[in-house]
Amino acid sequence: MQEKETQLQQMLTQLRTRVLMMGAAVGIALDEAFAALEENNAIRAAEVVDGDAAINALENEIDELALSLLVRNQPVARDLRFVVGALRMVFDLERIGDEAASIAELTVTLETPLPGEVMEAVGLLMRSAASLYKESMETFRTADHSAALRLCRDDDEITRQEMAALRRVMEFFCGNRDGQSKHFGYEGMNGILICRALNRICRRCANIAEHAYFVEEGIDIKHKPPEG
């Protein structure tokens, strides 16, 4: 016979479900923002901007649920770590949602698509961000602490890709080393802002992996250098 769930267990399940729902909503926003940028599709981008309110509402809902869970049940051990981890997660998820919205806003303002050679480098960074996001959420979903540790320690490739994309943007829009300007304007600025937004998404994905590690292992690895 299955044991009846306690109120605490029910609330924890509800909290986990809401965090995963928010994760899915943010994942969709990212995919849509990236697709809109690649297609230079302003309508699709505008939908991402509009959809950010729903993500913000989920954050508020999860905050309230976590607060209520703490007040009613005073969880300890893994349960407490889960609630603390969830609260940290939703903060990062909301900011990733904001970054998706800001990429979408920049897409709306683009008068012409980013040139192919710029888009190629930005696209590489974009796909890394998308993949990192999926992997970080997966470490949380599956409670895979070794994958979480690997993810949050492995950011050299992201930095390299961002530098390459920024260089491509600068070369194309701002001119080469001779200082010969080509087409600097909003497009150049937008290209830079998009690269920075993608980098911030990657950093927040690393944060999510850190939270997943904390929930599983009870050890905070924020702001700590890699061991060994």
Binding site: L8, V76, A77, R78, D79
Partner: peptide, 16 residues
């Protein structure tokens, strides 16, 4: 003990 006990038995007791 109340954030990351070593043993599952302890964890299961303190988490009810």
């Amino acid at each position: 003990m109340f954030t990351r006990p070593s043993l599952r038995q302890t964890e299961e007791y303190i988490t009810g």
